[in-house]
């Protein structure tokens, strides 16, 4: 369809060398993950934060930086506290399961 105008592809050049492939794969299945505003509500309520420093906010950040998140995720109890408090309505519980599934 031709609206008489188009949108140019972003011309930003990404100079970072980190491998954030996991983050991109996760986001393609869970677009909600991109809407996280790092408010930290999930960090405050996370049951597993004492055990492994787990929090959804940190996991999302670490994945974008290409850092390993296995240790953090290994203590998530799928308790859903983060989902209950997330102001963005991100389905964080499913997000955890998706990350666990796509991790390699």
């Amino acid at each position: 369809m031709d609206f008489g105008f188009g949108i140019n592809r972003s011309s930003t050049i990404d100079l970072t060398k980190t491998d954030n492939g996991l983050f991109r794969r996760v986001c393609s299945e869970e677009p909600g993950a991109r809407t996280c505003m790092a408010c930290g509500s999930c960090s405050a309520t996370c049951m597993a934060s004492d055990l492994s420093g787990m929090s959804i906010r940190k996991v999302l950040l670490a994945m974008q930086r290409g850092q390993d998140i296995r240790h953090m995720l290994s203590k998530c109890m799928l308790c859903g506290k983060c989902t209950m408090v997330c102001p963005r309505g991100i389905n964080t519980r499913r997000l955890v399961l998706t990350i666990c599934r796509l991790y390699d």
Binding site: R70, S74, K75, M77, I99, C100, R101, Y103
Partner: peptide, 8 residues
Amino acid sequence: RKYPISPD
């Protein structure tokens, strides 16, 4: 289902 990461 199988997951590569299993909580422990």
